[in-house]
């Protein structure tokens, strides 16, 4: 049972990690807690649904429950969600950033944006559930006592590849370096000639794309509904802060820790307390490292 819980935890954690990367960038590069990020997850899932509705999920390929169409849908949704994130920035957040509003105005505005985005989904698609595919897979015993679905193994693999690629991109590309410079010190980055607006645009685009990916994976296990992203919101924040804002690796490790904490906790205490687990881990970490596991200690604010 322990092995199974660990496997489940890693899977949950991988999906959380994809969403948490965007939250983490938001906290450090854009300098605010973007409560609307979870809605990008939902929108990503529903945009992929639009594609799937026209193209179909594809015939099951090998052991997987879907075909290439779903992958195409994910790319489609990733790009559109990235653009959506950027458009929201232009409409709301950039205006606030450029006015001398209190930094927390951004947080409240994000709250409002989240309400609007979530309920537009309700208005368009209704409250009911949707599915990409009606297939139901039976888990394979990958290790003694550990069962996983082929889809889940695929999700884990793809997440790993994408995160690794992102890490390389951020480390070696010009945009990546500019983003890291912004994360460390916005004013210094500006002085050094970093194009702030361009970095902001890329940050939104990447966050949105990864959120959409998390959304599609979430929808694959197994359903889409308007609150799917919102229900994940706190786990995303816990993971991002746990890892340390602005750190890609931190967000991934944070996501895995949150996933593991949820899944392992039920072995010891009532599952009724499961939703509190990410926070308890978070509090514990923050108590000893107020900047998170991989976060840089901040200077005076």
């Amino acid at each position: 049972m322990l092995g199974q819980a660990i496997a489940d935890g890693i899977l949950t954690g991988a999906i959380i990690a994809l969403g948490a990367i965007g939250v983490s960038f938001g906290l450090q590069i854009l300098r605010f807690a973007n409560f609307a990020h979870s809605e990008l997850v939902t929108w990503g899932a529903y945009l992929a649904l639009v594609f799937v509705t026209f193209a179909g999920p594809g015939t099951p390929t090998g052991p997987l429950s879907f075909g290439w169409q779903l992958i195409a849908a994910m790319v489609f949704a990733g790009v559109l969600t990235g653009v959506l994130a950027w458009v929201v920035d232009i409409l709301v957040f950039r205006r606030l950033r450029n006015s001398d509003a209190h930094p927390l105005s951004m947080v409240f505005a994000a709250f409002g944006v989240a309400l609007v985005m979530r309920h537009v989904v309700v208005l368009i698609w209704g409250h009911g559930s949707y599915f990409y595919t009606r297939e139901l897979q039976i888990a394979l015993e990958v290790l003694p006592g550990i069962r996983m679905l082929p889809d889940q193994i695929f999700i884990l693999g793809l997440t790993f590849v994408v995160v690794a690629a992102m890490h390389l991109y951020l480390t070696y590309s010009r945009t990546g370096m500019a983003m890291r410079a912004m994360a460390e010190s916005p004013s210094l980055a500006r002085v050094c000639g970093v194009q702030v607006e361009s970095v902001v645009r890329w940050t939104w685009f990447i966050s949105g794309g990864l959120a959409a990916m998390a959304g599609v994976f979430l929808g694959l296990t197994p359903q889409l509904h308007p609150e799917m992203g919102f229900n994940l919101l706190l786990a995303l924040f816990a993971a991002a802060i746990l890892g340390g804002a602005g750190s890609l690796i931190g967000a991934v490790v944070g996501g895995l820790l949150v996933g593991l904490a949820e899944n392992l906790s039920v072995l010891f205490i009532s599952p009724g307390y499961k939703t509190a687990m990410p926070f308890l881990v978070l509090l514990l970490v923050l108590f000893f490292r107020p900047q998170g596991l991989f976060g840089e200690k901040e200077g005076s604010r």
Partner: peptide, 20 residues
């Protein structure tokens, strides 16, 4: 006997516990 809280994205932990 496994309680669950509604509106979560996954219930594998609860299911695993019940299956054990």
């Amino acid at each position: 006997e496994v309680p669950y809280n509604d509106n979560q994205s996954s219930y594998r932990a609860e299911v695993t516990k019940a299956l054990a």
